[in-house]
């Protein structure tokens, strides 16, 4: 028996919305530690990794590890039947082929239940090594979204150059070029607006804006996004879902290489 209750159902809706344009079908793995998911997009260029620790949930029970094979578009459609303020409980029997979704209004006056068919999905699970990154930029997630959107008007590849006191996003395209520099800024009174740079050595890498744009669908999940970079290894864009329990949504994208 698996049962997990999202006290704030909106978080689940945002998580699914942040993954559904990259990943069509995926296995959500449930175990005694929590819920996790790892999937590549269809062209295997990027990877999405979700971790929701059991402490994140209002209540969590998982007697035996199970994988829930889901079509994210269908999942998202059913989740549209929930109200923003609802608590959402997911339930599945061991060896069952349906996922039960229960939506409860805040005052408990409305309870709805939906069943969704599960699928058998062959998924390739990749081992992601622990990496010490040369540069980690933590910035307001809305700022990252805006930069990706704005620079996407000019071109399709963004250069991200990280130095001690600032990070530069630059783009060149047919109609011209542009760049945005964010300086390190530790807004003590408003930590959500801070830009922090942890640097071991300066890093300059290029990435496809099309993918970064899909990553920013997670903006609503967290006021801050972090970009972890090292030469020749994939960039990690992380949105913390819950700081206290180390629950997160991460996206990986390899840097573009010159030919």
């Amino acid at each position: 028996m698996f049962e997990a209750r999202f006290e704030t159902g909106e978080t689940l809706i945002k998580i699914v919305d942040a993954m559904k344009e990259l990943v069509e079908d995926c296995n959500i793995d449930c175990s005694t530690t929590g819920m996790s998911m790892q999937a590549m997009d269809q062209s295997h260029v990027s990877l999405v990794a979700l971790m929701l620790q059991k402490e994140f949930f209002g209540s969590f029970r998982c007697d035996r590890s199970i994988s829930l094979g889901l079509n994210l578009l269908s999942f998202s459609k059913i989740l549209k039947c929930a109200s923003k303020e609802d608590a959402i409980t997911l339930k599945a029997e061991d060896g069952g082929d349906v996922l039960t979704l229960m939506f409860e209004s805040k005052d408990g006056s409305r309870v709805s239940e939906f069943e969704m068919k599960l699928m058998d999905i062959d998924s390739e699970h990749l081992g992601i090594p622990e990496t010490e990154y040369k540069a980690v930029v933590t910035m307001p997630s809305g700022e990252f979204q805006r930069i990706v959107r704005d620079l996407g008007i000019i071109g399709d590849t963004v250069g991200i150059g990280c130095e001690k006191d600032g990070v530069r996003f630059s783009v060149t395209g047919d109609l011209g070029s542009g760049n945005v520099v964010l300086k390190q800024n530790t807004s003590a009174d408003k930590p959500d607006l801070a830009t922090l740079i942890e640097l071991e050595e300066p890093v300059e890498l290029s990435f496809a804006l099309r993918y970064l744009s899909l990553f920013t669908k997670a903006t609503g999940l967290s006021p801050q996004a972090s970009l972890s970079m090292s030469p020749e290894v994939p960039l990690v864009v992380e949105y913390k879902i819950d700081d206290e329990t180390a629950s997160y949504l991460r996206y990986y994208l390899a840097p573009k290489v010159d030919e």
């Binding site: 062209s43 990877l47 699970h125 290894v233």
Partner: peptide, 14 residues
């Protein structure tokens, strides 16, 4: 893909 490496070339199957 031109200039873009796939994820499988960085992370091992496991």
């Amino acid at each position: 893909k031109g200039g873009q490496k796939r994820m499988d070339s960085f992370f091992t199957m496991g």
